[in-house]
Structures are given as C-alpha cells and as structure tokens.
Write a protein that binds this DNA or RNA. Structure first.
Lengths: 181, 181
DNA sequence: GCTTCGAAGTTTAGCTCTGAAGTCTTACGA
DNA sequence: TCGTAAGACTTCAGAGCTAAACTTCGAAGC
C-alpha cells in the first residue's frame, strides 16, 4: 500500500465510509445531503471562474445583484445591503470602498437624513452585472439540460419545500454566512 | 415611502425581480438555482450552531470528518487533508496548529520518510466527531421529514446526476472553496 | 559520493471578514 | 433648548484565509 493519489473520494465512496463509521445514518438521507453540499461547492467554483473572467469578484457580484434586484432606482444603504448579503456592516463598508474605487457603485450621504448613506449602482456596474448574468444563465441551463420539464418542476418544488422547513425551524439565527443565490 | 424593514426578499420575490430585470432567464431554472443556494446557506447556519454548541468550529469539524472517513488508522498528511478540504497547504498548517493545541489531533513526522507529516485523530477528536454526527443526523432527518420514500429516492438521484454533470464539465478548476459536505 | 532536482510543509505578507468600540446625526422628553 | 438616547455607519484589533517565498528531506544522475 504505497501512496494513493486520491484527491477527493467520490460521492459513493463517501457514503460507504459513512456507513462504515456511523451506522445510525440513513444512506438515502446522506446521499441527498452530501450531493447537495458538493453540488453547491462545484457551482460556486464555476461562478467564481465566470466572474473572474469579467474582472469581478464574487463579493462584488453579490453587491451588484442585490442592488439590481432591489429595483429602480437601484439604491440601498450599507446596512440594508449587509443584511441582505448576510454579513456585518463593517465588512460592507470595506466592500463599498473597493467598489467605489473601481467605479461599480457610488456612495453619497442622504441629504434628507444625513445619518444615512446611499449606495447606487453605476452604468458600468450594471453592465458588469448583465455580463455576469449572461454567463450564469448559460451555465445554469447547461447544468439542468439532462432534466426534463417534469423533473425540473418537481425539483424546484421539493427544494422550495425543504427551504421553507429550514426557515421555519430557525427564526433568525445568529450565524452569518456569505450570500450565494 | 418611508423605510421598509425588509431583511431579505422571499424566494418568490427574488424570482419576480429577476424576471423584471433580466428577461432572458427561465423562471423554472432560476427557481431551482436560487432555492439550492439558499437552502445550502441555511443548512450551513444550522451546522454552525450545532458544532458551536460542542465547542467546535466548522473548520475543525471538517478536518475530523476527513480523518474519520479516511478509515483506519485515521491518519492523513497535511497536504492530503488540504486537497480533500479544498484549501491551501498553508491554511492546513494553521488549522492543525490549533487542533493540536486543543487535543483533537496529533502531528508527528513520519520516521520512515522524514519529509512527511502524519496527522492522526485523538480519542477526544473522535468523540467530538461522533457527538457532532449525532446532532447532524437528527437535523437532517427533520429536514427531510416531509419527503416520502419515492421523493427522497428521486431527489438523491437527480442531485447526483447534476453533480456528475458539473464535475465532468470542470475537470479540476483552479478555484478553491471551503468543503461543506 | 556529491550535486541537483522535486516533493512536502512551513513561514511571511497581505486581504477580507467579524466583533467591539467610536463618531456623527436625528429624535425625544424635561 | 438642552441633554440624553437611539440609530447608521465607520474605525480598529484580531482571526483565518491565499499566494508566494523558503526550508528540508529524499531520489536520480554523473
């Protein structure tokens, strides 16, 4: 038994290892959970590459996404952005600093209420977001191409049901993780 | 239009916003992708809370998991661990430093080949992993309790199919992200 | 046997995030 | 109208990561 160049166990190997080390586990449940987690990681790698090709970081893409999806006039405060992206206001301050320097957004004091700050997307930022969306939508369609209409429908419905259950179970946890929708 | 306390748009609102801002998008595809991403985030928050309750970080849990799943004698080198967890060798060095200090693993030079280092789980580390697994398996079973056997079967199969497609499409990307299986 | 190359880990510099403390503005009550 | 409190954002210190330089050991060639 020399050195095996095993980079990462396959999903099947991993399930088998779980069975070996922890019998109280339903293999079917573990199959779903493992595949879900790993699929998500792989997709994030793909998104990362796509945004990088546009000279964009995933962090910046998230901010642009939140601004666009907020609707016209495409403005939000740092605090509101931080809540939507699931990070602290401090982190938001730094992200905005960088994005202002790159011309993706502007930051101004709200003259009507000088405590507030307004972050607004620039035309350049909007264009970048569109480019990223075009790449993402192609990738997503390719990803799902093996699923027929009925399967897609069912998958969307089941995932939404699971999501609802998790959200009901955790009113609003203290844990914070990056946004990745 | 005063201040709305909107913390995070619902999945349905988000799909609607996508339709409004980017018509080239299949709502069904977006439903799947958004629900997938958000579900994963929520699950990670739950795992985070569970491991924190055991005085463990998610990072430490990942290392313990890799060691246990590698099978007896539950040893791996730092480089191998880094590959399996999807992070750099440098990060692995630091993680192991902390975990050795906490008594979760041991680190020794391989006397047969003094370039190599052997990281091995301690009985305390193994016990912690078991505690974490018990919590996780209860949570996972609760999460899926609304799905009947047929649905679980189908979901596992479909997710595995998607995973295979992503892995085939990206031989071995340069992007690195945290492991979260 | 010495030298050179390559592989495995560690160290260093720099970045981004969190949590806590600090600043500034507005709102409210005496 | 003045002082105090509350809210929004920023600043600061510290944790954990990446990329790249560095160190050490073992293997191959001359």
């Amino acid at each position: 038994m020399a050195d095996t160049p095993d980079a990462e166990p396959s999903i099947e190997e991993q399930i088998a290892a779980y069975q070996r080390e922890f019998q109280d586990l339903d293999p079917q449940v573990e199959q779903i959970v493992s595949a879900l987690g790993r699929l998500n990681r792989r997709m994030n790698v793909a998104y990362n590459r796509q945004t990088a090709a546009l000279d964009l970081t995933n962090a910046e893409w998230e901010v642009l996404k939140a601004l666009v999806l907020s609707g016209a006039p495409y403005r939000l405060g740092p605090g509101e952005l931080a809540r939507r992206l699931g990070l602290t206001p401090a982190a938001m301050t730094h992200r905005i600093d960088r994005m202002v320097a790159e011309g993706l957004v502007t930051r101004d004091r709200d003259e009507a209420n000088r405590v507030r700050v307004i972050v607004e997307i620039t035309p350049e930022g909007r264009e970048k977001w569109l480019d990223a969306m075009r790449l993402a939508s192609v990738f997503e369609e390719e990803l799902l191409q093996d699923l027929d209409g009925g399967e897609r429908n069912k998958l969307g419905e089941v995932l939404t049901r699971l999501l609802r259950r998790v959200e009901d179970a955790q009113p609003d946890a203290e844990g914070r993780l990056a946004d990745l929708d």
